[in-house]
Design a protein around this nucleic acid. Structure first.
Length: 372
DNA sequence: TGGGGTTAT
DNA sequence: ATAACCC
């Protein structure tokens, strides 16, 4: 058993603890899974909400809720109408702005990184920590101290989350349970799903997961999105894009690295087809990248121009259109400008020549207002 | 159904 | 650029 989980310590909403598995090559990996994370962040921000049934709302959905709400019948991803019907006393807070959740999420990851730098994030509320080294060292120490019986134990679980598409394909093969998957012909499964997916999920069906814990490090991308009932004009789209961009620029500023690619994503209205998205991306012009570290004001206008070009490339604005989502993503993040002191580049890079010299962390952009 | 994220193709 | 996966 490699990546396995136990349910210990019932007191906290953190499911912790791990696995042993006798063999010397086994690893010790802790899966930290925070329950109702957004609701917990809200209860910390608003202590007066503690004890009341609380739900976090995004648009028409209650995306998560605390235990009090659950006991009254509220479920994750429940419609607001249904939730209110089930539980009229339900208190709802808006959770569309993920800033505080994201910040708290990274605080948790950073805390875990103190135990071992090998921490892999999964979403905002799950972390896998490879504690193999730490445990081995502790075992050595304990054994030399006092060679008494030393056992580690835990509960092993089989991973049974298999994705939507794969589930459908498996069902078509008559595979509907973990047991079915365990006993299904490997050869046939490989032919149907490809060797990679087939071998992986079949091992998972036995609770075997050899995949390494890959340190997540800083994020590979930053994105902000907004969904809505209808956006059908270019001006409307531009306004929404400006909003998304303003938030993103603040985040990029704080991160310190510079994105070299920008992407615009849309979702078009469709009766009920599978919500497919379309995107266009391009390299961020270097003159914009250079201005990124300092103030957002100079960057806003040229960046919006770039985004609107991407927009018109996707959407024929001369024809009627109906969008239900817009998203802007910065990716291809690069460490910092490697411009060296004394070179032309160094003095042409505002973030280096003006801020770096005047103090190590002298630039912390806060409160950059984009009034028009 | 939200507002994020990642990796593979 | 999209598709699939995760939360």
């Amino acid at each position: 058993m490699e990546r396995a989980e136990a349910w210990a310590a019932g007191s906290s909403p953190v499911h912790d603890q791990v696995v042993p598995a006798g063999s010397s090559s086994s690893r010790v990996i802790v899966h930290v899974d925070l329950d109702c994370f957004y609701a917990q962040v809200e209860m910390i921000s608003h202590p007066e909400l503690k004890g009341k049934p609380l739900g976090v709302q995004q648009k028409y959905l209650v995306v998560t809720c605390n235990y009090e709400a659950r006991e009254l019948g509220v479920k994750k991803l429940m419609n607001v109408r249904d939730a209110k019907e089930k539980c009229p006393q339900l208190v709802l807070v808006n959770g569309e702005d993920l800033t505080r959740y994201r910040e708290m999420s990274y605080k948790v990851t950073e805390l875990l990184e103190e135990f071992s730098p090998v921490v892999e994030r999964l979403g905002f509320d799950e972390n896998f920590v490879d504690l193999t080294e730490m445990v081995e060292k502790r075992l050595e120490q304990l054994q030399s101290d006092e060679p008494s019986a030393l056992t580690v134990s835990g509960h092993v679980y089989g991973n049974q989350r298999i994705g939507y598409k794969t589930t459908k394909r498996l069902e078509a093969l008559g595979i509907s349970s973990v047991r079915d998957l365990q006993t299904f012909s490997s050869k046939i499964l490989e032919k149907e799903l490809g060797i990679s997916v087939a071998q992986r999920i079949q091992k998972l069906s036995f609770g075997e997961d050899n995949s390494p814990v890959t340190p997540s490090g800083p994020p590979q991308s930053f994105s902000e999105e907004d969904s809505f009932k209808k956006c059908s004009s270019e001006v409307e789209a531009k306004n929404k894009i400006e909003e998304l961009l303003a938030s993103l620029l603040n985040r990029v500023c704080q991160d310190g690295r510079k994105p070299h690619t920008i992407r615009l994503i849309i979702r078009r209205y469709s009766s009920e087809k599978h919500c497919s998205r379309e995107s266009r991306q391009c390299a961020i012009p270097s003159h914009i990248i250079q201005k990124l570290g300092i103030g957002n004001y100079d960057v806003m206008t040229p960046m919006v121009d770039v985004l609107m070009k991407l927009f018109r490339n996707m959407v024929n604005v001369k024809m009627p259109f109906h969008l239900t989502l817009l998203s802007v993503c910065f990716c291809n993040l690069k460490a910092l400008n490697t411009a060296k002191k004394g070179t032309i580049d160094y003095y042409l890079t505002p973030s280096l020549s003006t801020t770096s010299r005047s103090g190590k962390h002298s630039f912390k952009m806060k409160d950059i207002h984009m009034e028009d």
